[in-house]
Amino acid sequence: MKPQNIFFAICSMVVLFFSAEEIQAQGCVAIRHFSSCVGNTLENNLLGPGDIQIGSNYRYFKSFRHFRGTEEEPDRVSNETEVINHSHSWDFFLTYGITDRLYTSITIPTVINTRSSLYEHGRDERNTTYSRGLADIRVGVGYWLFDLEKHQNGNLALGLGVKLPTGNYNASDIFYNVGPEGSPQVRPVDQSIQPGDGGFGITLDFQFYQKIAEKFFAYGGGFYLLNPRETNGTRTFRETLSPILENEAIMAVPDQFSIRAGVSHSFSNTISGSLGARYEGVPVKDLIGGNEGFRRPGNVLSIDPGIAFMKDNFSLNLNVPFAVRRDRPQSVTDKQTEENTGNPRNGDAAFADYLINVGVSYRFANKKVKVDPALMNEFKN
């Protein structure tokens, strides 16, 4: 069987919507938009030499449910003091097959975000801040560990990439009732809606698939973003809310992570479905670098159903993960404040109930026929 036919056979059997690489599945305001840098869906990475896959992933969520630890604070919604984030993001990507097993990809993300709150505008009236534009570009390479022709029923790919600080990490808007004598003032928007984080990052990722029965595949994958830079110099103005928040005056550049797994089923040659789980978030401490500055650590466990359509070189997929467990743990600055004041301290974060992921892609297969040099010589005679 030709390698290229194997690629398409695997693609048709394995669900084509691993846009679970999107980390903000439940929209914790601690977690900005991010996806891995070596292709957002499995079929993007099953390429023959010279194949090109282009596409886009759209993601939307509304975060508004506040948590401290794993405990929800429902009164925030009932008394209308909740923070409401609306996040729209588009990832435009191109993946290129270097060999049967080695591939490279670039992802260019754009975002449009809004944030409605009381506490950022003097606490007496609700106002909205906005951010939009290019986010942090990612580039990387990936490699399938096993020969695809000999291992059609299962394989494992490892990836390595870099995140470039191309997004604005000091996006600003007008905040009301916070300037001199209650006047409006231009300030940086909240960390959760900044298009960029201001740091060069390194991404480590993996993905796998394994046939478990006729028309059934297990799948999984994940990534970890290392952000060595400690803080980016952007002011939060949190110290103006309370003197005890002086240690949160500057934004941190936190790590992020995501892991997911599940089972997919092919209903037909064109329709697939899957059901899985994902766990993702922002850790309390980075693996490399310091941990000063303001961050909202948070993590979400989600159930992730999806459906996909694939015909010839075109694929369309939809995932709607919904949260079953949300956690906003104590941050480093929370612990510092608790030590300094002797009072318990655990900041809150707002999470969404669900996320909408829609992906579309098209493959340009390399169909060039390589002519044997000996045959070319025949034409020359």
Rank of each mutant, 00 (worst) to 15 (best):
N44D: 14
N45F: 01
N45G: 05
N45K: 15
N45W: 00
L47S: 07
L47Q: 08
L47T: 09
G48Q: 02
P49C: 03
D51G: 06
I54R: 02
G55Q: 03
G55N: 04
G55T: 04
N57G: 13
N57Y: 07
Y60G: 04
Y60V: 10
S63A: 15
F64N: 12
H66D: 06
F67R: 08
R68C: 01
G69Q: 05
G69T: 06
T70Y: 02
E71T: 15
E72K: 09
E73W: 05
E73K: 14
P74R: 11
P74I: 08
D75L: 10
D75E: 11
V77N: 02
V77W: 01
S78M: 09
N79K: 13
N79V: 13
N79T: 13
E80C: 03
E80M: 07
E82G: 03
V83G: 04
I84G: 01
N85K: 09
H86F: 03
W90A: 14
F92D: 09
F93K: 08
F93W: 06
F93M: 09
L94V: 15
L94P: 00
L94D: 00
L94Q: 09
L94G: 14
T95C: 11
T99V: 05
D100N: 15
Y103Q: 07
T104N: 03
T104Y: 02
S105L: 05
I106K: 06
T107K: 09
I108M: 14
P109Q: 10
P109V: 12
T110S: 11
N113S: 09
T114A: 08
T114L: 08
R115V: 04
S116G: 11
S116H: 10
S116N: 12
S117F: 05
L118F: 12
Y119Q: 10
Y119E: 13
Y119V: 14
E120N: 10
E120K: 11
E120T: 13
